[in-house]
Design a protein around this nucleic acid. Sequence first.
DNA 1: CCTCCAACTTGACAGTGTCAAGATAAGATC
DNA 2: GATCTTATCTTGACACTGTCAAGTTGGAGG
Lengths: 203, 203
Amino acid sequence: MVDEQTTRRRTDRDLKTALIDAGVELLRIRGADGLSLRECATMAGVSHAAPGYHFKNIMGLSTAIAARGFQLFCEAMTRRLDGAGPSPRDRLSAICHGYIDYASDHPALFLFIFSGQKFNEDDEFFCSHSERAYAILREACAPFVASGTPKEDIEVLVWSLVHGYSQLSMTRKKENPKLDRSWPDFDQLFKHLGKALTPNDET
Amino acid sequence: MVDEQTTRRRTDRDLKTALIDAGVELLRIRGADGLSLRECATMAGVSHAAPGYHFKNIMGLSTAIAARGFQLFCEAMTRRLDGAGPSPRDRLSAICHGYIDYASDHPALFLFIFSGQKFNEDDEFFCSHSERAYAILREACAPFVASGTPKEDIEVLVWSLVHGYSQLSMTRKKENPKLDRSWPDFDQLFKHLGKALTPNDET
DNA sequence: CCTCCAACTTGACAGTGTCAAGATAAGATC
DNA sequence: GATCTTATCTTGACACTGTCAAGTTGGAGG
């Protein structure tokens, strides 16, 4: 847990990131409501009050973890985008699948950042990473904005759909095979969405 | 807080509902992560361990509160449905607005029931109320299911859209008027959704 | 009147976040 | 090298939390 120089006191940044790492891991293990300052401290190999020095209170640590969450969120979307075709439709689909990747790879973190709990919205990293996530999504939506209509209509349409799908995929009760319900793949939804979207620079 | 017969010990059902009432109120005041067994007990006028007798642990109380949450959820949707026109499109729109009503009238409760925290899925009331909520939504979607396609496609499409819209309306950062972003009304999204939905028994 | 039992209360314990005060190492100054 | 300063923790305390075991109580049935 601690690197070779155990004697040497670590720098500010070291422990901060170690505590965030611990927090992400703790969420993975315990679920979206399993965060604990003291347990993060123990995992990082410091005393119970050490986190309080770097992050004023638990909201401070939560905010830093959420910032990391948004960072991973951005990475998941850009990773899909890098492997996508050039057409607006392919790119939008890639973003959506990145969104869903993130939710299924980091379920607790996903729920955590959208849990509605209060974060410190003055935090620089939190703001920049969360805004970047939304910016990525907005960019992919831009080609579908019909002239004369506000671009927010399309953005919120796509965003709501993929967010709702991700969240519901996660919280729904797992299937009882006796019931004839099955959970559709997102591509099915995207096909329907396609009827409502027309790229304004395609033939 | 206690009715006229303070001397008389209350019945099982009385305290149970009083504790659920307290829980709902507590969520309203403190937000989605502000629930506390002991505080519910105090609000209901009983000792700190009384809730443990009726609800084995905090998951038991949480489940009961979530059940109440789904009940209010159903009421919000049926209230809109009662005032809606007869066409499938009007009825589906009514359901969606009921969904949104619920999220804005009971934000903490809405976040709570979809927070991803574990509930007791064996609980009778929790299951019946949550399943009824989904049944109401499914019914409104039924007229739009194209023959030959699984009905889940439409259901999840609508459900995801309205759920995502509700949640994002709630967790998004409030507008900086300097930014030219505005939050569209759901009717705008519903218009786009309409392009993807064709009632199979309308002209 | 007595008994019994459901519905609590009381008390304890380990865990939590937060704060104040103390310790300590690394670097700066003399 | 000795002293001072400061950032970075540690220690200890407090009020709060959920959970459990044991005790109490009041009403119903005999």
